[in-house]
């Protein structure tokens, strides 16, 4: 029998803080073991700009602007298994704390009424910039998500257990101590 094909994994950070990616690196020397069985496609760890056909997509962060929607869809279209990694992807997290405010109030406060703004500052309207959504959403409200890995961030151990379960082809199960929401 052939040696099993390496699984292709892509990762990205939407409205997140890269904390979950840091946690991924936190699996330390096990990262080398991981690289034995997976190879990375689009990811901040590589420099690939667009997601190719992948086995697993790991999404950090929630959806807060139009670009997030496009990236998330690219991942969904290309990844057989899509995983929401971390509190922000799972439930919107810290960025979603703005959801009880109206976006136009926030924009006005930040770009117009906030004390200490330089004169002439206005709300950016450059078409190159992605527009913010009225609210921040967890990723499962925009695309179908196969698995959720909670934590802010999930610990290196939790990520390791989760990924090795996935790679081994069994339904990931974290168990007590590894499931944490904080």
């Amino acid at each position: 029998m052939d040696a099993p094909r390496k699984l292709k994994v892509a990762t990205t950070s939407l409205a997140g803080c890269f904390g979950c990616h840091m946690s991924l690196l936190d699996i330390d020397e096990r990262l080398l073991d991981l690289l034995e069985i997976v190879e990375f496609d689009r990811s901040p760890l590589t420099d690939i700009k667009h997601c190719g056909h992948c086995d697993i997509g790991l999404i950090e962060g929630g959806v807060c602007n139009a670009e997030n929607v496009h990236v998330l869809r690219e991942f969904r279209a290309n990844c057989k298994i899509l995983v929401a990694v971390g509190a922000c992807a799972v439930n919107g997290g810290l960025p979603a704390q703005r959801n009880h405010l109206q976006l136009h109030e926030i924009l006005t406060a930040v770009y117009a009424t906030e004390a200490g703004l330089a004169s002439g500052v206005q709300i950016p309207n450059d078409p190159e910039l992605p527009l913010p959504l009225n609210q921040v959403h967890p990723i499962h409200e925009v695309v179908k998500v196969d698995y959720f890995l909670p934590g802010c961030p999930p610990s290196g151990d939790a990520i390791w257990k989760f990924l090795t379960d996935l790679v081994a082809g069994c339904s990931p199960h974290l168990g007590y101590g590894l499931i944490r929401y904080d």
């Binding site: 919107g92 967890p138 499962h140 409200e141 998500v145 698995y147 959720f148 499931i179």
Partner: peptide
């Protein structure tokens, strides 16, 4: 419970 599942 791995996620809140429903829309917030």
């Amino acid at each position: 419970m791995m996620s809140p599942h429903f829309d917030h």
